[in-house]
Simulated scan of single mutants.
Amino acid sequence: MEQEPEIQEEEVKAEDTAEAEATETAETEETKADAEPDKKGFFGKKKEKKDKKDEQIAELTDKVKRQLAEFENFRNRTEKEKSQMYMVGARDVIEKLLPVVDNFERGLKSIPEDQKDGPVASGMEMIYKQLITVLTDLGVTPIEAVGQEFDPNFHNAVMHAEDEELGENTVSEEFQKGYKYKDAVLRHSMVKVVN
């Protein structure tokens, strides 16, 4: 009979050992789970734990993108400034040429009728036409004045008169021709306005 308690003691020891191994295995799995966090979050999506290298890469990528955008803005701003400087420079040069054009026109008007076919008159006419062609190619156009309605944006009224034949607020005479460079007014037309 004494053998039976020994067998029972061995069975109890075996059971205790199995339980201890099971709890040890469970504890080991829990510590592994704690050491290696759950990679699945809500709805089964993986949680991403960023590495320092990934953070540096993201930061540097962001810096590069910002610098590229800044450079693009700088390039656009520089192009705009260059075109504006060109416009200002061209406008200054053209404004200085306009009195030369005026003098050519006065000179051509002062030539007597009997000398208009002479070599001096024809030379002046050719130079004048060439000068007007160059100005037109640059984008300079004369402002229409005589017969037009007075517009303070284009005309400078220096005289006022009454004339029943012409309509209200009409330009009857032009004293000095006005010019536009592209869309900007270089010089207003000096005009006489009637009614």
Rank of each mutant, 00 (worst) to 15 (best):
residue 103 N to V: 04
residue 128 Y to L: 08
residue 106 R to N: 14
residue 117 D to G: 13
residue 127 I to V: 15
residue 102 D to T: 02
residue 130 Q to E: 15
residue 118 G to F: 05
residue 140 V to N: 01
residue 94 I to G: 00
residue 123 G to V: 03
residue 108 L to Q: 09
residue 129 K to F: 05
residue 93 V to C: 01
residue 119 P to F: 09
residue 95 E to S: 10
residue 120 V to P: 08
residue 119 P to K: 13
residue 111 I to M: 02
residue 135 L to Q: 00
residue 131 L to A: 14
residue 129 K to N: 13
residue 101 V to E: 00
residue 132 I to N: 09
residue 101 V to L: 04
residue 129 K to T: 11
residue 104 F to K: 05
residue 125 E to Q: 14
residue 117 D to V: 09
residue 137 D to R: 11
residue 99 P to M: 01
residue 95 E to Y: 03
residue 131 L to W: 03
residue 122 S to Q: 15
residue 127 I to H: 07
residue 111 I to N: 04
residue 140 V to P: 01
residue 116 K to E: 07
residue 129 K to L: 07
residue 98 L to I: 04
residue 136 T to C: 07
residue 104 F to V: 05
residue 135 L to M: 07
residue 104 F to W: 04
residue 115 Q to C: 11
residue 139 G to R: 00
residue 133 T to V: 10
residue 101 V to K: 01
residue 92 D to K: 10
residue 119 P to C: 09
residue 93 V to I: 08
residue 129 K to E: 10
residue 105 E to F: 05
residue 137 D to F: 06
residue 111 I to F: 07
residue 139 G to H: 00
residue 107 G to P: 05
residue 106 R to F: 11
residue 138 L to R: 03
residue 130 Q to G: 15
residue 95 E to H: 02
residue 112 P to Y: 05
residue 99 P to A: 01
residue 107 G to F: 12
residue 122 S to W: 02
residue 120 V to R: 12
residue 109 K to L: 12
residue 114 D to S: 11
residue 133 T to Y: 11
residue 136 T to A: 14
residue 118 G to C: 05
residue 96 K to D: 06
residue 116 K to S: 09
residue 124 M to P: 04
residue 104 F to P: 03
residue 98 L to P: 02
residue 104 F to L: 12
residue 135 L to F: 04
residue 104 F to Q: 05
residue 98 L to G: 01
residue 117 D to L: 11
residue 99 P to Q: 00
residue 127 I to Y: 08
residue 92 D to H: 09
residue 138 L to W: 01
residue 130 Q to S: 15
residue 100 V to D: 04
residue 113 E to G: 08
residue 128 Y to E: 10
residue 131 L to I: 11
residue 116 K to C: 07
residue 120 V to G: 12
residue 95 E to I: 04
residue 133 T to N: 13
residue 110 S to T: 08
residue 110 S to P: 04
residue 113 E to R: 05
residue 124 M to Y: 07
residue 132 I to L: 15
residue 136 T to V: 10
